[in-house]
Structure formats: C-alpha cells, structure tokens
Design a binder for these strands. Structure first.
Length: 472
RNA sequence: GGUGGAGUGGCCGAGAGGAUAGGCAGCGGCCUGCAAAGCCGUCCACACGGGUUCGAAUCCCGUCUCCACCUCCA
C-alpha cells in the first residue's frame, strides 16, 4: 500500500505520486513573524513534521521548504506601535518560532527562506504577470487581475461572483474589487527601510506573492506538496496558485491543510487573543507531552484544547516512556541506527499510509506496549527486546522516541524534580508543624536550610509552596 | 448569500455496511509488606426522525445543533 493523502484542491484522497520517484518537494507556509507562537501555530507545523518524517522513513529524499514572511503590513504596524524597527520585530518572533520548533522536536527544514531575501524573484514574477496580461499597475502598485484568470477560485471551489472584495488596498484603485495587491507602492510615513526598488518605483511585496516566488526558486516550477493551516486556503493559497499558474507554472500537485486548535469549540487565534502561548504551556508541561497532544489527533480533525489535554498527554507519555525505560534497563538500549532500520509493523504502516492516521498508529503502539509490558512481567527478554525496538521505531516516526537525544534528558530532569518535590514537601510539612507550635526557631532553620540549597519557600493562606531560586 | 467541515461511551479520540479501535477515568481481580507501575477482566456509544438491507455508527432522504473560510489568521 502506498501513501494516500487528502488533497484539498480535488477534495479527495489520492495516491501520492511524486514528480520524481523517490523524491518529495514540500512547501509549508511558515509563520508571519508578527507575534509569539501559540499552540495553534505549532499544531500545524508538527503535522507537517510528521509528514516529513514519514516520507523520509519510507525512503523518500525530502526537500522541506518552510518560509518566514518577515515583511507584511501587520509586522510593520505592530513594530511601529511598539516603537521598534520592523526588522528587529520580525527577527525577534522568528527566533521565538524557531525555539518553539526546536522545543517540540521538529526536524529542521532544508531551508527557511525569508520574504525579504527573495525580492528579485518576487519582482521578476510580477513583471512576468504584467507581461502576460494577468496584472496591471496603478500609481506604483501592481494588482493581480482576477478577471483575466478563469481558474481563479479553483482551489476553494468558489466562483468570482460569490466573493467579497479584497480589502488589502483601496477598491477605487483596482479594476475589480476582488483583485489583490502584488506590489504595494510605498506611502509617506512608512519606514524607508521597508522599501525596495522595482520597475514601478519604491514599494514592497503584497502578502501572497512571496510564497509563489520562493516555492518556485527552491522547488521548481512544479512540486509535490504544498501545506499550511486550513485558514490559509483562502485567500492566501488560492492567490498563490492563481499567481503561479497565471505566470505559466504548474505549481503544487497536492494541497494539504491542517485543521485548527479550538477552545470550547472556537478557533484559537491571534486576533481573538485566546491563543495559548507555547512559552506559557511549556512552563508547566513537558515538550514531549505537548508534541504528543498536538500530533495525536488526526491532522484534519479539530483539536479541542482543554485543561485536561496536556495532563492526559502527560499520562500517555509517561506510559510510553516508562515502558521504553524499563525495557531498556532490562535488555539494553538499541542505537538510533537500529531504531531507524527496524521493521515497522504492518498495521502501523497501513495507518500512516492512510492519510497519516496517527490516532490509529498510536492505537497500535499502545498494543505493542501492552505486549511488551506483559513480556517484561513474564521475564521473556527476547520478546521485550523486539517489543521495545518496534515501539521506539514507531514512536520515532512521530518524533516521539523517548530514548532519542531530544527527549531522553527530559525524562530525567522531570523525574529529578518529582523526587526533589517529595523531599521538599516533607520539609514543608515539618515546618508547618513547627509554625503551628510557634516554634519559630525550628521553622526558620528549615527555611534557611532549603534556602541555602537554592530552594525558595513562599508562605500563603493556602500553605507553603516552593520553587528553585532564580538568583545567580 | 457562497464554500467546506463536524455531532461516537464519564472524558479524549479512531473507524465508514457484519470483527474488540486505542487512551484516560470508573469497577472487579492478579501482582505487591503497603503502594506505585504493570497485567487480566468489565461497565458506559454512535445528534434526531424516516428509509434501503438478512444486517446500518457506516448508505439514502429529511431535521436539528455546532464550527470554519469568504481578503488579519497555523
């Protein structure tokens, strides 16, 4: 059975047939670096990370391009509001995204082109569109002529007449309100550092053209898979496809869209302000648990995020990691090369090939863990060894092998904190008794001892809590 | 108005005409000095109303509810 993927453009599950057998070129719309990453962003990128890993595992040479849109109206506006240069603003959040990607164990992209590093390609593509009669200039700005391209709306199955006007520029400047900006003439008051020379004068690219230009530069006129969040389908991806095809390029053969993260049924979003920042979630939860929570649901299903999402995932992770830990102590640890070369069970392979059905794949992993645990109890070491190798190989496909470099330190750190907590809690209790008996000397002695060890005690009405000192 | 998605047990979440999804929680047991972990067993389902079929969570018709996109979005 070969890999089958749901193609948003044709609205059906299709066999993955790469342009060049054995190779896969993937373009994933990366972040517009206007703010901090929240778990909704991460869900999408983790989904495509699993795709990347599965393609690699099934013998493909993958080229993963994930762009950074670092010049855009919102970036400029938010930076201005904060009194910071737009480029510093953009880089700050680019770093935060990179840190979040690293924290949840994403494979690095092969390249992460920035829009600002692709201006010549962008200008060239706009020139080509003007030449071919699919774009026109008005007062130094250039617009895509939607009426000139009959296939406009094909990706999202919409007719032009049903669409609302594009609001990215004044309607009176355009031939048709649905036309959208390819190049935006610079206006007085805008930062002079956000401006590039072009045949139409100084300006900057519109929002969609950068992806068309970068995808072509790094993946060619036609490439295998274009991915992104479901909310990018329109207008962003529709416009990308229109631009590229109007320019004469075949563009993406398959469109993949990941569903969003919801809270109480409503989409997590920057504009709603209900986005849970990755940095906040990771303060209280293990990164592996976050990855498991995000990757564990099928990528096209909404992921309902609640208070129990991460605690459930943490328990599941503890079960998986616990088995690998106990089994490895018993029969020794396999090398990563052995894990990468291990044969994968057929039910797992079938699930992954069926539009990346991670939930079904996980069900099979649990089955293998159960058998492995039983073998551990029975003292059947050969069965333990084969189970742990198989479990690690499957988890590795999901980026969740507990014994790999990414995660093996984490379990120890967290176990150390748990152990420390139980010791400290005993002290806290003894101190509470001393305080109740008004034995201040004894109470202070306990606090001083903990303090000397770098542990800070804070009293409150609800009792004492402890934390590690952040001094020096 | 246009386009698309969803409703499954206490909770999360697969499946898509006939078999036990899986996990968490619960209950009973095994193991254990007691626990924990683990294992075994077990309870609790397919939004509603019709229809097709030997058989429907799955197909068809209708209804209800929820959600998203329609130029800020991962």
């Amino acid at each position: 059975m070969t890999l089958r993927l749901y193609d948003t453009a044709t609205r059906e599950v299709r066999d993955f047939e790469p342009l060049v057998p054995g190779r896969a070129g993937i373009y994933v719309c990366g972040p517009t670096v206007q703010g901090s990453p929240h778990v909704g962003h991460l869900r999408s990128f983790v989904a495509f990370d699993v795709l990347q890993r599965w393609l690699i595992r099934t013998g493909h040479h993958v080229t993963m391009i994930r762009n950074v849109t670092d010049i855009e109206d919102k970036v400029i506006a938010k930076a201005a509001e904060a009194g910071v240069p737009w480029w510093a603003w953009a880089l700050q959040f680019e770093r935060e995204f990179s840190e979040a990607f690293r924290a949840v164990g994403m494979l690095p992209a092969d390249y992460e082109p920035r829009a600002t590093g692709s201006i010549p390609e962008i200008v060239a593509m706009i020139e080509l569109l003007v030449e071919r009669g699919h774009a026109y200039e008005v007062n130094g700005s250039v617009y895509f002529d939607t009426a000139s391209f009959p296939a406009y709306g094909a990706l999202t199955n919409q007719g032009l007449g049903d669409m609302a006007p594009a609001a990215d520029s004044p309607a009176d400047a355009k031939r048709d309100p649905r036309d959208f900006a390819l190049w935006k003439a610079s206006k007085p008051g805008e930062p002079t550092s956000a401006v590039w020379a072009s045949p139409w004068g100084l300006g900057r690219p519109g929002w969609h053209i950068e992806c068309s230009a970068m995808a072509r530069r790094y993946l060619g006129d036609e490439f295998d898979i274009h991915g992104g969040g479901l909310d990018l389908r329109f207008p962003h991806h529709e416009n990308e496809q229109a631009q590229s095809r109007a320019a004469g390029y075949a563009f993406a053969r398959l469109w993949l869209h990941s569903a969003w993260v919801t809270q109480s049924g409503a989409k997590m979003s920057k504009s709603l302000g209900n986005g849970l920042l990755v940095s906040e979630v990771l303060r209280e939860h293990q990164p592996a648990a976050l990855r498991l929570a995000l990757a564990g649901v099928h990528y096209r299903s909404m992921l309902e995020y609640s208070d129990s999402t991460l605690t459930d995932a943490t328990a599941t992770w503890a079960r998986l990691a616990g088995f690998v830990q106990r089994a490895s102590e018993r029969v020794g640890s396999h090398t990563h090369a052995e894990v990468a070369a291990a044969e994968l069970p057929e039910p797992f392979v079938d699930a992954m090939n069926d539009d990346l059905s991670v939930p079904r794949a996980l069900a099979h992993i649990h089955e293998a863990v159960r058998l492995g645990n039983a073998a551990l109890t029975a003292g059947d070491d050969p069965a333990v060894a084969s189970a742990v190798l198989s479990v690690r190989a499957m988890l590795d496909v999901l980026g969740l092998d507990p014994a790999c470099e990414q995660w093996k330190g984490e379990a120890q750190a967290s176990a150390a904190l748990t152990a420390l907590d139980s010791l400290v809690q005993a002290d806290i209790e003894a101190r509470a008794q001393a305080r109740a008996a008004k034995d201040w000397q004894a109470a202070d002695a306990i606090r001083d001892r903990l303090s000397a060890a770098g542990i800070v005690i804070e009293d409150s009405a609800d009792g004492a809590r402890w934390s590690l000192s952040t001094d020096d």
